Structure formats: structure tokens, C-alpha cells
Amino acid sequence: MTTTTAGSRTQAAVERLPGAWGLGLRRGGLEIRQFFRQRDQVVFSFCFPVVFLFLFASIFRDGVPGTGINASQLYVPAMMASGVMSTSFQSLGISIAVERDEKVLRRLAGTPMPPSAYFLGKIWLVLFTGVVETAILLLVGTTLYDVDLPTDASRWFDFAWIFVLGLTGCALLGIAISSVPRSAKSASSVVVLPFLVLQFISGVYISIGTIPDWMLNIGALFPLKWLCQGLRGVFLPDSAKVLEQTGSWEFGKVALVLAAWCVGGLVLCLLTFRWKDRRTG
């Protein structure tokens, strides 16, 4: 009788355990709290694109012929795209590499927590920080640089799917590249260098019209270029289409490339992700 009762209690306790989705939500809350406890990281993450927006918009203030906009307005969607990739690709690529090197991932792998809950927690962190950073840049852009918010519901719908697909693709790419650094010390260099190069050849810091075609073709292989182009299509008037490589926003191609990176990034994660560092196998 006692054995039966104990077994029933154990079974009931197991049934009450939260699933992967519930654990992912809790893990996401923990990730967000840990993020805000590191005040220097919070300030750097949110202020970095704002400072660059202020610098570039202050230096390049002339009007762009034939578009009805000034150069500073071009940098608002560009910095939004850069901010999305910074909070996803760069943040996850470095933080996961550090956690692997410090044996955090190895300890988590030995717990009953489903692996999916760990990644859900990271996605919640990326989504939260990405929304906050985008809201800050929108506030700065509309108040200081005369960027108009869309009045058409279809433009807001475009913004929503561009943001979600771009954030997801960049986050998965960040998880995949986290397996490249051999140690926590090299993580920043390994992740920041390609991100910096992509910003220059994807239309973040330099106008598309001044970048050589061969560089644009390389940038077109990655999500940042299409994220920038899609956000320009949302927040800039149609007269600015002439600045694009094809003279169009190409929303269909933006959706196709970003969705492809979501699928491709997931495949890369499944093929490359490791819970242990190379030194311990």
C-alpha cells in the first residue's frame, strides 16, 4: 500500500512538471533578468546603434536628389536592421560561446531540462531586446530625423514579418556561429569581424549606390542586406526606391531570402551545435 501510494505521488509529480514551452518561458525570464543585471552590457547594447545613428546622421545631412528625403533618414532603418542583427547574431554568437567555454552548457545538458527550453529562452531574450532596441531607434528617428511612421496597415504588416523573419534568421545564424570560436577569449573577434564587414557591404553605413556591385552581390547572400532593404521600404517613401540596386523594394525577394535563412540557419544549428567545447570532446 505504501509503495503504491509513493509511486502515485511520484507519477503525479512528474505529470505536474512543466513542458518544454513552459520551461522555455521561465528560461527566457531568467535570461532577461541576467541581461539587465549586467548594466554595462545593457547600456552598450541599446546605446551603440543610437550613437552610430547620431554620428552618421549628423555628418551626412544633405538631401538626396530625386527622393524627397535627406541622407540622415536613410540611416534610421539601416541602424534598426543593424540593431536587430546585433541583439541576435552578435549577442547569441558571443554569449553561447562563452557559456560553452565556462562549462555552463555542459551542466545544463546534464539536467532534466529539454534542450529546446534552453534555445527558447535565448529566443525570448533576443525577441525582448530586439523589440526594445527597435522601439528606441524608432523614437529617435521620428523625433530627431523626421522619419514618418507608416499610416497604412499593410506597411505595419510588412514591418512585422520583416522583423520576425530577420530576427529569427539572424538568431539561428548566431547560434550556429557560436560553435566556431575555440574559446571564450576568441568569441568576440570571430563574431564581430563578419558582422562588421556585413554592415559595410549591406547598406548600413554606406549608401547602396556607392558600393561596388561585387560587394553588393556578396552582401545579398546574407540576411542583413535584405533586412535593411525591407525596413527602408517600410519607413521611407516610394520615391526612395531609386536608391535601391534594382529600383524596387523587392518585398517578395526579401521574404524569400529571410525565410531561406530561417530554414538554413536551423539546419546549420542542427549540424554544428555542440554542448561541450572542443578540448573536452
Rank of each mutant, 00 (worst) to 15 (best):
L243I: 08
Q90Y: 14
V84N: 12
F195L: 11
L105G: 03
G66E: 05
P114A: 08
V42S: 04
R39P: 00
R26M: 13
L92T: 05
S188F: 15
A171G: 02
P212F: 05
T210P: 00
L74V: 07
W21E: 00
A6I: 12
S88N: 06
R232N: 11
R279G: 05
S179L: 04
V197C: 09
T168M: 15
F195I: 02
L236R: 01
R279Y: 10
A171T: 04
V131C: 05
L120Q: 10
W249T: 02
L55N: 04
S82L: 15
V14M: 14
V104G: 04
S45N: 10
T210H: 13
L236I: 01
L258S: 05
C228F: 10
D40N: 12
G68D: 06
Q73R: 09
T134L: 10
T4V: 08
C262S: 02
S239F: 04
D152N: 06
L53V: 06
L173S: 10
F200W: 13
G230K: 09
G265M: 07
G130D: 04
A160E: 03
T151Y: 00
I177Q: 09
S88V: 02
D277K: 07
V126C: 11
G63N: 07
V204M: 11
F35C: 03
I94P: 00
L266E: 01
A260I: 01
S239T: 12
V191D: 03
L270C: 00
Q245A: 07
L224C: 08
G264P: 03
K103W: 08
V126T: 10
Q90W: 15
E15Q: 13
